[in-house]
């Protein structure tokens, strides 16, 4: 057994080492490195996935280093320069300037910050409870626990998330924090349902049955046996959802229930700019394209991950 394993490792690793000199841990490490390498190879074969990754990395980079990469960082705040107001796109201001003379390119890049923050915070708030409820409901499928949890998720899934999120955000004070809360309250049921479906299948697998037979604790079965098998779909969904959450967030800020001025929110900029159509078309159009690019990036990335993980499982 070790002999075969050793041959396999040395063949793939390209190193001539005797089978006995490799520890089990070293072997595991190598095989993990192999897997990552192979996954990356497969991922990089699809130009669209790579484009998605590139877009996402670029946006993250721009957002983090916004004060250093933008041409006029001080335009992100309450700055006015009426002499240069409403300038169409030109070499000095690539995306033009808004009604009070601020550089739109700068503001779009700063807008990425809150957009990404929105996605990250919402997913961080939503995934743990959603996954936990889905695990429990799926494992106890057919009992009252399942009924209660899944009927509650049905209620939240009965209405498009934007409508309830708008309603909740509207009764709270309008700001970024509260819009995140509103979206989070609407988003956990999707994870509960995803994990519920996976768990209710997995709980009949032999490895779960044998864990039950040897008396493993419920926590062990849920978190060590079932959860690791749900990780890939959850991960894929998170990548796709980053885009959708950002979209809903920008919709909230579009109606004035999200990021508050003078901070640049992509949705707010589109909504304010729409008033200056058609003469100053660049004011709403570039922030709108910013939203499209961000959602497109995360979608391409998510699709790439899904193909990758689906191929791995097959």
């Amino acid at each position: 057994m070790t002999k075969v394993m050793g041959d396999w490792v040395s063949e793939l690793g390209g190193r001539a080492e005797s089978a006995t000199s490799i520890s089990w841990r070293e072997l595991q490490r190598r095989s993990r490195r192999e897997n990552i390498g192979r996954a990356w190879y497969k991922f990089s074969r699809n130009p669209l996935s790579v484009a998605g990754l590139a877009i996402v990395l670029t946006i993250v980079f721009l957002a983090i280093f916004a004060p250093y990469v933008t041409p006029y960082p001080h335009h992100a705040g309450p700055f006015t320069d009426f002499e240069n107001a409403k300038l169409p796109p030109n070499l000095k201001y690539l995306f033009g300037t808004d009604t009070i003379g601020r550089d739109i390119l700068t503001r779009v890049i700063f807008g990425f910050q809150d957009a990404l923050l929105m996605g990250i915070v919402v997913l961080a708030l939503v995934v743990p409870p959603g996954v936990l409820l889905g695990l429990v409901a799926g494992y106890y499928q057919g009992t009252w626990i399942d009924t209660i949890i899944m009927r509650i998720t049905d209620i939240f899934l009965a209405v498009p998330p934007l409508i309830l999120a708008l309603a909740i955000a509207s009764v709270l004070k309008p700001n970024l924090m509260n819009s995140m809360m509103a979206v989070s309250l609407m988003w956990w049921p999707w994870y509960a349902r995803l994990v519920y479906g996976l768990t209710s299948q997995l709980r009949n697998e032999y490895f779960v049955k044998s864990a039950e037979t040897i008396g493993a604790s419920k926590a062990h079965i849920l978190f060590r046996e079932i959860l690791p098998n749900c990780v890939s779909p959850i991960f894929t969904k998170m990548s796709l959802d980053m885009g959708w959450v950002i979209l809903i967030g920008s919709s909230l800020s579009f109606v004035g229930l999200g990021v508050q001025p003078p901070k640049p929110g992509l949705g707010t900029m589109v909504a304010d700019g729409a008033r200056y159509l058609p003469d100053q078309w660049w004011i709403p159009v570039f922030p709108a394209l910013g939203i499209v690019v961000i959602v497109l990036g995360f979608n391409l990335l998510g699709d790439g991950l899904r193909d990758l993980l689906a191929a791995e499982e097959a």
Binding site: G243, L247, S250, S251, F254, V270, A274, L277, P284, V285, A288, L289, I291, V292, V295, L296, N299
Partner: peptide, 9 residues
């Protein structure tokens, strides 16, 4: 991937 309000504008 394009939100309806972007198409609208």
């Amino acid at each position: 991937v394009t939100p309806a309000f972007v198409f609208a504008i």
